[in-house]
Write a protein that binds this DNA or RNA. Structure first.
Length: 328
RNA sequence: GCCGGAGUAGCUCAGGUAGUUAGAGCAUAUGACUGAAAAUCAUAGGGUGGCCAGUGCAAGUCUGGCCUCCGGCA
């Protein structure tokens, strides 16, 4: 189903929150006859609009957007589901002879497409997780060491979420977690093939992802920290106007999104929900969103910095030039 | 002025009966990330313990004085 044609190309626009990805990507898509595939783990949910900074119909200016509003916020969406849908969207765009722009700030989602990482075909097993959750990190780690010593070697021993997932994979398949090797990431473009474990399959992308300078261009929007903090603040104030964001959360809660679920959704959703439950004051809500958003931006940059293929730009002009170069 | 409470990390505070290098959460800095990724997790720096004196082998901890803040009474 997947055509891995040499002439096919993928452009990624990434950057920390509030860096201006949306505006830039629409401008670029119009210029280069492209369509946009969102890579945002919150904008996939229907109804998370203002708080997630989702583009409005008007802002799209006729540029088609994919992977928005594809999930119900009451349920958890996953990287694996994302990978499947996004790969499909990319193919669809290419079949129209248009240029796909993968745009967003969720590094893990972007990587799932760009490197077509293999996500083991094991669905979350909530009953099993509930059982394992009762155990301590130490106990979980010891179990994993026995069942999958390779994965145990480089897992974060103290992160229950990672431990649970790794155990879930071995326990339900009886096989170890496939090892993840991404040569380009470590800066060795010569090694091009990922040692794919045939027992697991990646979901619908080109076999070795979009590796190669002729196929992939990753552009990152660079902003210094002080500037980003200002942008985050400006955006936050705009979202609070007319109680827009507060009302959005109220509405979602009325539609059945639990307070507990809002905690998982994070940032604006977490703190607005806490405010609506009278757990924090209005001012605390604002301060927390601001601070946590800055932290989040930092975490995003930590992730992006690892990928040496990313070319950092300051403005639209630079990225336009880069793309012209890339396409010629 | 009197009575009571309090002064310990940038902030909020823990620290029975005095005993090795004073802790936590948050903040700050840095990092990780294999189906929750705006989530989850890790590491680090940082304190002349309000000030001065006294008792003790030993004081954040006991005693006295002074300074500052909060509450109540006048």
């Amino acid at each position: 189903m997947i055509v891995n044609n040499k002439t096919q190309k993928l452009i990624v626009i990434l950057g920390p929150t509030a860096s201006g990805k949306t505006g830039m990507s629409i401008k670029l898509a119009k210029k280069f006859n492209g369509e946009i595939v969102s890579a945002d783990s919150r904008q996939v949910y229907k109804g998370l609009d203002i708080g997630s900074g989702k583009v409005t119909k008007k802002e799209m200016q006729g540029v088609p957007h994919h992977l928005l509003d594809v999930a119900n916020p009451k349920n958890r969406f996953s990287a694996s589901q994302y990978q499947k849908l996004a790969n499909k969207a990319v193919v669809k765009i290419q079949n129209k002879n248009k240029l796909p722009f993968l745009v967003g700030g969720t590094g893990f989602y972007i990587q799932s497409i760009v490197d077509n990482i293999v996500l083991p075909e094991v669905k979350p097993n909530w009953a099993l997780r509930a059982k394992l959750e009762k155990k301590s990190n130490e106990e979980l780690f010891l179990m994993l060491e026995k069942l999958d010593p390779v994965r145990a070697q480089n897992i974060d021993k103290q992160n229950p979420r990672r431990l649970l997932r790794a155990l879930e994979i071995v326990i339900t398949t009886g096989r170890p977690v496939p090892s993840l090797v991404i040569p380009d990431l470590i800066g060795d473009p010569e090694l091009s093939s990922l040692s794919l474990d045939s027992r697991f399959s990646a979901q619908g992308g080109p076999a070795s992802g979009w590796r190669g300078n002729d196929k992939l261009l990753q552009i990152g929007i660079k902003k210094d920290r002080a500037e980003l903090a200002k942008l985050i603040n400006k955006r936050l104030i705009a979202r609070l106007k007319n109680n827009a964001m507060i009302n959005e959360v109220k509405k979602l809660h009325k539609q059945g999104v639990s307070w507990k679920r809002f905690e998982e959704l994070g940032l604006e959703y977490r703190f607005v929900a806490q405010f609506l439950q009278n757990k924090i004051t209005y001012q605390e809500m604002i301060d927390n969103i601001q601070k946590e958003s800055e932290h989040f931006a930092k975490r995003q940059m930590t992730w992006f910095k690892r990928d040496k293929r990313i070319k950092w730009v300051k403005n639209y002009r630079q990225s336009e030039k880069m793309i012209i170069n890339f396409l010629s």
